[in-house]
Simulated scan of single mutants.
Amino acid sequence: MKYLMLIYGNEEIWSSLPGDELSALIGEVDAFNDALRASGELVDSQGLVPRAWSVRMPGDTPVVTDGPYLEAKEYVGSYFVVDVDGAERAREIARSYPALRFGPGTGGGLEVWPLMSGNGDEL
């Protein structure tokens, strides 16, 4: 089953990290991605360019506004998709994401979303 993992962060906090700490974190994330790629579990991994747009239908016409959906100090900064045997493996991967452990108080988190297959049997 495939899972989307959304990586949340706080732009102000990440921008304030000293260069050597940021380089160390990037190295850990690269190694994390390489290990998942080598295991055949990594489907895709991309950073997102700030900022998103939000499209809503408050009346009869779609309205496009700056995103993300809500005012927040954290935003989705990247994602990866894994294809694994089940939810427990997806949780294991999510718990091992390097940025979660990097520097207490740096903010951020990770959401795990099971992806529907073509027929939607998961519902």
Results as ranks from 00 to 15, higher is better:
55 V>H: 06
74 E>H: 05
74 E>G: 02
93 I>M: 08
120 G>P: 01
80 F>N: 00
35 A>K: 13
67 G>I: 14
51 R>M: 13
32 F>R: 04
48 L>G: 04
13 I>E: 05
41 E>N: 08
78 S>R: 06
111 E>A: 13
89 R>E: 14
25 L>T: 07
63 V>F: 03
24 A>Y: 07
13 I>M: 06
88 E>G: 06
55 V>W: 10
58 P>V: 06
17 L>K: 02
118 G>A: 15
109 G>P: 01
38 A>P: 01
16 S>H: 05
40 G>D: 10
56 R>D: 10
115 L>T: 04
65 T>P: 01
9 G>V: 05
90 A>R: 08
113 W>G: 03
4 L>F: 14
61 T>H: 11
117 S>R: 12
66 D>G: 10
12 E>H: 03
86 G>M: 06
19 G>N: 09
37 R>N: 06
112 V>E: 05
39 S>R: 13
85 D>S: 12
24 A>F: 06
5 M>E: 09
92 E>C: 01
1 M>F: 02
51 R>S: 15
103 G>C: 07
35 A>V: 03
77 G>W: 00
81 V>M: 03
71 E>Y: 01
95 R>K: 13
93 I>V: 14
89 R>S: 04
20 D>I: 03
86 G>R: 07
117 S>I: 00
75 Y>L: 14
97 Y>I: 09
24 A>W: 06
3 Y>A: 03
4 L>I: 08
64 V>T: 15
118 G>T: 01
65 T>G: 05
85 D>R: 12
47 G>P: 08
19 G>V: 07
34 D>E: 14
4 L>S: 06
33 N>G: 05
52 A>C: 07
25 L>A: 02
15 S>Q: 12
72 A>P: 01
97 Y>R: 03
48 L>C: 04
75 Y>M: 12
22 L>K: 09
102 F>M: 02
43 V>T: 08
83 D>G: 01
99 A>T: 06
106 T>M: 11
28 E>M: 10
3 Y>I: 02
120 G>L: 14
6 L>K: 09
31 A>Q: 14
80 F>K: 00
108 G>A: 06
46 Q>F: 04
94 A>F: 00
108 G>L: 04
57 M>S: 07
93 I>G: 07
82 V>T: 15
8 Y>K: 15
87 A>N: 09
56 R>N: 11
1 M>Q: 11
116 M>L: 14
32 F>S: 05
41 E>S: 10
20 D>M: 02
9 G>H: 12
46 Q>Y: 08
61 T>E: 15
123 L>D: 13
92 E>R: 09
58 P>T: 07
114 P>K: 09
86 G>Q: 07
116 M>A: 12
94 A>Q: 00
116 M>T: 13
2 K>C: 01
108 G>I: 10
106 T>D: 02
62 P>T: 08
38 A>R: 10
41 E>I: 05
7 I>S: 02
52 A>S: 15
49 V>L: 13
90 A>K: 09
